[in-house]
């Protein structure tokens, strides 16, 4: 086990950020922590990276206890905070060199680990970090977090505010790092990224809702789910919400995801109802549940 968390609770003055959280991450796993803003993801990261001490519970990273053995953890983990936190007035190379030196290593020593990523920013190695684009900053931060060859990598919302192309690239990089035997704990508010993890934990309000593989989590959603569309989206949502048998109604792109409370639900019946609400171009199709549907259902 690479990360073990048992009954961790943390409260700030008035807010309970984490409530009795327990889970484990296997060695070499790409584990996703999925949840909205304020769910407690960053607090959990800060506890695991020894920046914060939990009120209750025990946790260990790479076999070291977060309290008693925090020094060993600091040598063996890489942490990339959500906010870009490298020296903006140092160049790309200087930043990397700095982190290599304080970890007692050199760029050359672990170059093979960061090579794939570093060659993309190498043309800008004499540019100040503050002058890089968002995606470049992300890559540099990842390089700095990897330069000492960590056993466990913590990435706190690494793709927030990054364009879709860079996001995709970033996840491909993570997959490659995983193949090199690094355990990765990544948090994200994006549900589509969740499907790329080996296992995910859905977290909300400081509580873990569900832990499983993305494929299995979707299967937890038992109710048949329907894509509903019509000419007027706003009125459609309102009408569906007013429908007496509705179980859940969530806008989802160009459709509305609808589930019914009855087990013998007939789409034709719903269509008649919607037509009576003066909606046209109505389509109702059965669809498969996504992680987002599951999350919304669990978070209800």
């Amino acid at each position: 086990m690479s990360i073990k968390i048992a009954n961790i609770s943390k409260s700030y003055k008035k807010v309970n950020a984490l409530k009795n959280i327990s889970f484990e991450v296997k060695s070499g796993e790409l584990f996703g922590l999925i949840g909205p803003d304020g769910a407690g993801k960053t607090t959990l990261f800060r506890i695991l990276t020894t920046l914060l001490i939990a009120n209750e519970g025990v946790a260990s990273v790479a076999g070291f206890d977060v309290i008693t053995d925090y020094k060993s953890i600091r040598k063996n983990v890489g942490y990339m905070p959500g906010k870009f936190s490298l020296y903006q007035d140092l160049t790309v190379e200087e930043n990397l060199d700095f982190f290599a030196t304080i970890f007692g290593t050199t760029i050359e020593e672990n170059y093979d680990l960061i090579k794939d990523i570093y060659i993309q920013i190498e043309p800008f190695k004499n540019r100040r970090a503050g002058k890089l684009s968002g995606g470049m900053k992300q890559k540099l931060a990842l390089c700095c977090a990897l330069i000492h060859k960590p056993k466990v990598l913590f990435l706190d919302e690494p793709t927030t505010g990054v364009d879709p192309v860079s996001r995709k690239e970033f996840w491909e990089m993570l997959k490659r790092l995983q193949q090199k035997g690094i355990t990765i704990l990544v948090s994200t508010p994006y549900m589509d990224e969740a499907a790329l993890c080996d296992r995910i934990a859905l977290i909300q309000g400081g509580k873990i809702l569900e832990i499983d593989t993305p494929a299995a989590i979707v299967k937890h959603y038992l109710k048949p789910i329907y894509n509903v569309s019509a000419n007027n989206m706003y009125q459609l949502v309102n009408s569906l919400k007013a429908y007496e048998y509705n179980h859940s109604v969530y806008p989802f792109g160009e459709f509305v995801h609808y589930t019914d409370r009855r087990s013998d639900f007939n789409p034709a019946e719903l269509k008649v109802y919607l037509e009576s609400k003066k909606l046209s171009n109505i389509t109702i199709e059965k669809t498969v549940a996504t992680i987002e549907d599951t999350f919304m259902e669990l978070a209800k």
Binding site: T49, T50, L51, K71, R74, K75, V77, Y79, P81, K83, F84, S85, L86, Y87, Q88, F99, I102, F103, G104, C144
Partner: peptide
Amino acid sequence: EIGTLEQINVTPI
């Protein structure tokens, strides 16, 4: 302020 202290704190320094 710029957040680098947090990054520094997760190092063996």
